[in-house]
Design a protein around this nucleic acid. Sequence first.
DNA 1: TAAGATAAGAGGGACAT
DNA 2: ATGTCAGTCTTATCTTA
Length: 302
Amino acid sequence: MVLQTFNIGVSCVRCGKNSMLTDNATGERFCGKCGYVISERIDESGPEWRSFTQDEHSNRARTGVPTSLTMHDMGLATIIGHENKDSTGKPLSTSMKSTVERLRTWDSRSQAHKTIDRNLRHALSELNRLQDKLALSDAVIEKTAYLYRKAIDKGLVRGRSILGILAATLYIACRDSGTPRTLNDVSSEINIKKKDISRCYRLLLRELDLKMPVVDPIKSISRIASKAGLSEKVERRAHTILKNASEMEITSGKDPMGLAAAALYLSCVVSGESVSQKVIALASGVTEVTIRNRYKGLKESL
DNA sequence: TAAGATAAGAGGGACAT
DNA sequence: ATGTCAGTCTTATCTTA
C-alpha cells in the first residue's frame, strides 16, 4: 500500500523488531511488522503556546503534535497510496484489493486529495522560501496560509496560477498586518508579473469579502525618508504638507507612494536641502515623472 | 547633471449600450 | 457581456538651466 519504502535499520518501539521503514513520498516512518507509525515532526516543532511566567510554563502540557496551517495537511497526514501491495511489498488478495479500492475512494472523496493536496504542497513550499527572502514574520506566513486555504475552498485557484494566488494572499497578509511590503517587493521575489498579482489580489478582495484600508501616505513618508537618508525636519514638514493636501482633497485616486515621495521632495526644496528626484524615486519605488506630477499639484496647493 | 516636458502604452474603474 | 472614456502611472526620449 506504500509507494516506495526502505529499511532504516531501526528497531520498532512497540514490537521490537528491526523493521522500521521510511516512506519516500511522505517522509513518515513506520514499522513494517506491526504498523506502528512515528512522526519526525514531534522533535522539530516547538510548543503551540507561549508562556510569560514560570508558573504558566510549568502548568501547561502538550496534548498532541502541534499543527500549523503552513503544513499542507496541518501535520495530520494519512494517505492511502495507489499500489495494491501490502507493507512488505506482496500483492494484495482480491478481496483485500476491493476493500482498499473502496477505502481509497472515500479517502480521496473526503479530502479531494488529487489536485488540492498537490496544489497546497507546492504553494506552501514556495511560501517557506519567500519567508526568508522577504524577511516575513511567522504571523504573516500563517495568515497567508489561511487565506490561501480559503481561496482553495472557494475554488478560486482552479484555472489560475498557483503562485499568482499565493503572491496575492501574501500581499494581503502583509497589508493587513501592517508589514510594509510593496507589490514590487513581492513581485520580484516570486517572479510573477505585477499585473498578474494585482489581478488575483482584486479577485480575492472581491470574493473573500475582504476590506483593505487605503494605505495612508503619511505612513509611507518615514519609510521613504529613512531609505533615502533624509533629515527628520524634512520628514516632519512633509507630514504637514500631506495633511494640508488631503484636506484640500487633491489626494484621492493618487498613488499613496507617489504622494509621499512628492511631499518629501517638496519638503526638501522648501527646506533648502538639495536632494535629487532620482534619489527619492529610487527610495520610494515610483518614477521621477510621477514625483514631478504630484509635486506640481502639491506646489499649487500651497 | 538634474530637472522639466512630451508622447506612447498599459491596466483598471465607471458607465452606457 | 462588451465598448468607450477619463484619469493614472510607467517608460523612453528630448530639451533646458
